[in-house]
């Protein structure tokens, strides 16, 4: 395996709910893994297992309670994503780490094409060029001109998810954190996302993605991290994941087709 780009060690997240008399929640306990450039790590596990918390800790939307995430930047500098100054997190998010949440959080009253173009303009791309590239990506994801100039707040779940996916792939980052990127998509659009993921990987993007769909994991993942009650174990993509609701999810996916 190549030199890891990301090395997570002992990640523990504890949330103290002061408004609930100091109750504690433990989404993640002592999670460790490595990730090489261009590698695809799938995260699987039942709801509430800590999957989203893991991505949010790497994005610094959550503060890790313990552990380190050693990340080698494009410039070759090693930083700990859990403790690097906020200013550098802002810069890393702008240039090389992209987190795509499960549900689109688009700013209000901004057309879909501009939501996607903003990823590029923040990286210094000229507005007109950014709009063209954003539009091409949305078109590739099956969104016509009238949808592109409409506000995502008015969209269906699947359309919002495609805007979110377009943000991830319009200029693939070095590290891509995806939270169920295909959960609301039909088969055709799901296959388009798979193509985009493969292209990004071929370009060197390392991916950590939460998936419920076994088939997708088999097709895409190099390795799988299974989470249960915040504890992680690593399995191969074609192994039985040993998750109680695994088969149920498969059935649901069948029904939804």
């Amino acid at each position: 395996m190549a030199e890891p780009m990301l090395s997570v060690s002992g990640l523990t997240k504890t949330i103290t709910l002061h408004i609930l008399h100091g109750a504690e929640v433990h989404p993640l306990r002592d999670v460790s893994f490595d990730l090489a450039p261009g590698e695809f790590l799938a995260i699987a596990g039942p709801s509430g297992a800590g999957k989203s918390s893991l991505l949010k800790c790497l994005n610094r939307t959550y503060l890790a309670t313990a552990g380190t995430a050693r990340y080698i930047t494009r410039a070759g500098e090693a930083v700990d994503l859990f403790s690097v100054p906020e200013r550098e997190v802002v810069a890393l998010r702008r240039t090389e780490i992209t987190y795509v949440s499960q549900f689109l959080k688009a700013p209000p009253r901004v057309p879909a094409v501009d939501v996607v173009a903003s990823v590029l303009t923040r990286r210094g791309v000229d507005l007109e060029v950014a709009r063209e590239r954003a539009s091409a990506m949305l078109t590739r994801l099956g969104m016509g001109p009238s949808l592109q100039t409409s506000y995502p707040a008015l969209f269906s779940g699947g359309e919002q998810q495609r805007v979110n996916v377009a943000k991830a792939f319009v200029d693939p980052p070095r590290l891509l954190l995806l939270d169920e990127p295909t959960s609301a998509l039909d088969v055709e659009n799901r296959d388009r996302v798979i193509d985009l993921l493969r292209e990004a990987q071929a370009g060197g993007t390392a991916v950590i993605a939460i998936f419920h769909d076994r088939e997708l994991i088999r097709r895409l993942a190099d390795r799988v991290l299974v989470l249960a009650d915040g504890i992680a174990r690593e399995v191969a993509p074609d192994e039985d994941l040993g998750i109680a609701d695994d088969s149920l999810t498969d059935e649901l996916m069948e029904v939804s087709r």
Partner: peptide, 20 residues
């Protein structure tokens, strides 16, 4: 903190109250 962190993972009791 970062605005999304303050809103999604508030640490101080007052911030948790505010966000909720």
């Amino acid at each position: 903190g970062l605005t999304d962190q303050i809103l999604e993972d508030p640490q101080h009791p007052y911030t948790q109250l505010l966000v909720n």
